[in-house]
């Protein structure tokens, strides 16, 4: 994983230097790159054949809406994975994501139900999410392993959710939530528009700015990055704030979609978010976590859940399929990684 940044862009000049003995191309063997996309295509074709409802436009919108929450929270997780590196115990991971999704949704719902206007409720919810992110950032910078710091802060966040709601769902309707749920912008559902905007911003920030390049550097080789003048700790801290903010935003969308702040709903989301962000590796030729890859895998997971429901496969199979999926995906990545290192 550490060496991949040296990859020469291989497609830049295929005809420029064919005469020399071509250096062995680093990165994944070409055919493997398409495995992820092939799996996605196979899934779409299979569900389309099995269910006439699956390939309709309205169902595509449903998948996109369901995928929006997952994708936005996944972008945050992806930023943490990118900046924190991939060591088992010390690498970046944000286990509080699910709890923050739940907390921010519930805070917004409780405030709205108490008569606060949305102009106040939504920023306050995002601010609460940022507080959790700040706690994560501070703990990680102080030297607590991310796994533990975010596990503990996640536990605190989900119990605050329970304390706030007494484990009863808080219904919301109309206003901003109604618009997020049913509104549309130039024919597209509001949540899809939010997803598109967040994707554009995050993908640009990670993929095309100095900040993004340095974040990758901090994650892949923190010592080298620090020597090269990257304030690694500051980047790591920022990544947890970004993750919490995006999780908070996803929580608002989720509350809008469910028309209620539902306690406990975020905790179920955590595994999907980890799956989504980790799976993005498969959609990247250099085997790194990417934002576009996260978007594709979020839609993959959302389509999977949606398709299983339409085909009438029992929900108990969904977990097994997701588990096998993670395994396949990370096994392919592990095999590819080995061929890179050799």
């Amino acid at each position: 994983m550490t060496l991949v940044t040296e990859t020469p862009a291989p497609s830049s000049g295929p005809s420029a230097a064919p005469a020399q003995a071509r250096p062995r191309r680093r990165g994944a063997p070409p055919w493997l790159v398409w495995v992820g996309y092939a799996a996605l295509a196979a899934q779409l074709v299979a569900f389309s054949l099995l269910s006439p409802v699956f390939p309709t436009a309205s169902n595509a919108v449903t998948v996109l809406t369901q995928g929006a929450v997952l994708a936005i929270a996944g972008f945050g997780m992806a930023v943490v994975l990118i900046t924190g590196g991939d060591d088992v115990l010390r690498g970046g991971i944000d286990l509080s994501t699910g709890a923050v999704v739940g907390l921010s949704g519930v805070v917004a719902a409780v405030l709205t139900a108490a008569g606060t206007s949305a102009v106040v409720a939504l920023p306050v919810a995002l601010l609460v999410a940022l507080v959790v992110g700040a706690v994560n950032a501070a703990a990680v910078v102080l030297g607590v392993r991310p796994l533990l710091a975010t596990l503990a802060s996640g536990a605190v966040a989900s119990s605050v959710t329970l304390v706030l709601t007494q484990n009863v769902k808080v219904p919301v309707s109309g206003g901003v939530f109604g618009w997020l749920r049913d509104g549309s912008v130039v024919g597209l559902p509001a949540s899809v528009v939010v997803l598109a905007v967040v994707f554009a911003v995050t993908a640009t920030a990670v993929g095309a700015t100095r900040w993004g390049v340095r974040a990758y550097a901090a994650g892949q080789n923190p010592v080298a990055a620090a020597v090269a003048g990257v304030p690694v700790q500051r980047y790591v801290a920022t990544s947890y704030l970004v993750s919490a903010l995006l999780a908070g935003l996803a929580g608002l969308l989720l509350t809008a979609r469910l028309s209620a702040g539902v306690p406990g709903v975020g905790d179920q989301l955590l595994l999907d978010v980890i799956l989504t962000a980790s799976m993005s590796v498969v959609f990247s030729r250099r085997l790194v976590v990417t934002i576009p890859g996260t978007l594709v895998s979020a839609l993959f997971v959302a389509a999977l859940t949606n398709g299983f429901t339409l085909v009438n496969v029992g929900s108990q199979w969904v977990g097994a399929v997701k588990g096998v999926l993670i395994l396949l995906v990370v096994a392919v990545a592990a095999v590819r990684e080995r061929s890179v290192q050799r």
Binding site: I93, L271, V324, R338
Partner: peptide, 20 residues
């Protein structure tokens, strides 16, 4: 044998085990 990171491998086993 496969070389998957423990966090992801055991997470997958958790999901599969719950389904099982």
């Amino acid at each position: 044998v496969v070389g998957i990171r423990p966090f992801l491998a055991t997470l997958a086993v958790w999901l599969i085990g719950s389904s099982a």
